[in-house]
């Protein structure tokens, strides 16, 4: 499968997972977004020598995977991309420090994975809008996301057509760099005009309307505060060591 086909396949898989995610999907997107950010900040704030303390952060993804009944497969695939780079940076550090770096890499990617699997991009954009991110950026993210699949399929067809005319050739030849990509670009620009006209026909007046524009409920605020408390506890109290000492 080509790189483009892989990307299309992954996007469809994420979409189907977002539809299937149960209890976690119903939670407030803003709450999930803030929880993810707080978790990531806590994970990266650990000292590089504190591998045991870092390990305690596994509790969040563990709970989420169990509660949300999430698939582990795609997550492992994602982690596989980043680990070599993290190892490369950490290779000159002492072994303990490198372990902490790898753990940080795994946990932060897992947190982002949990967020995207349980929250659709529209909901994340609605959450960003509630955090007062400029409308233009939120709209752009939504539009890019909407047209990525369309353009990926178009690019895939073009590249396939090219490779059928140039069998056995790896990639696009030097002479075709400009014309091939330029043609796709010109078609994309024309498509943008058609997109704009169709958006206007459907009532677009410069801003999108989100379904999730309600304020955070008291329950959500309480959950967020509790989560912050747990994160502070895990950050400053070595839970694993205390439990270990107690057991021994």
């Amino acid at each position: 499968m080509s790189k483009i086909e892989n990307a299309i396949h992954e996007l469809h898989r994420i979409n189907s997972m977002q539809e299937g995610a149960g209890r976690l999907k119903e939670a407030d997107p803003l709450l999930k977004f803030l929880v993810t950010i707080i978790y990531i900040i806590t994970v990266v704030s650990f000292d590089n020598t504190d591998a045991v303390g870092e390990l305690a952060m596994i509790l969040y993804p563990l709970c989420m995977f169990i509660i949300g009944e999430l698939s582990v497969g795609l997550c492992i695939k994602r982690i596989g991309y980043i680990i070599p780079f993290v190892c490369l940076v950490g290779i000159f550090n002492p072994p303990g420090s490198m372990v902490t770096l790898i753990l940080k890499g795994i946990f932060t990617i897992t947190a982002a994975y949990i967020l995207i699997i349980t929250t659709g991009i529209e909901d994340i954009c609605a959450a960003l809008a509630r955090l007062h991110m400029p409308k233009i950026i939120v709209t752009l993210v939504l539009l890019i996301y909407r047209y990525i699949t369309v353009l990926l399929e178009e690019v895939n067809q073009t590249v396939q057509a090219y490779s059928l005319r140039a069998p056995g050739q790896k990639g696009i030849a030097f002479r075709a760099w400009g014309p091939l990509t330029g043609q796709i670009l010109l078609r994309s620009m024309d498509r943008a005009s058609a997109v704009y006209e169709s958006m206007c026909l459907r009532g677009y007046r410069g801003t999108f309307i989100y379904k999730n524009t309600v304020r955070m409920r008291l329950k959500d605020i309480a959950l967020l505060v509790a989560f912050c408390g747990i994160m502070v506890l895990l950050r400053y109290v070595h839970v694993f060591e205390i439990v270990g000492d107690f057991i021994i």
Partner: peptide, 15 residues
């Protein structure tokens, strides 16, 4: 928006 998607998509072409 479409240009963003274009850049995203064409960055996957191997030249």
């Amino acid at each position: 928006g479409v240009m963003g998607a274009f850049v995203f998509a064409t960055q996957m072409i191997n030249f």
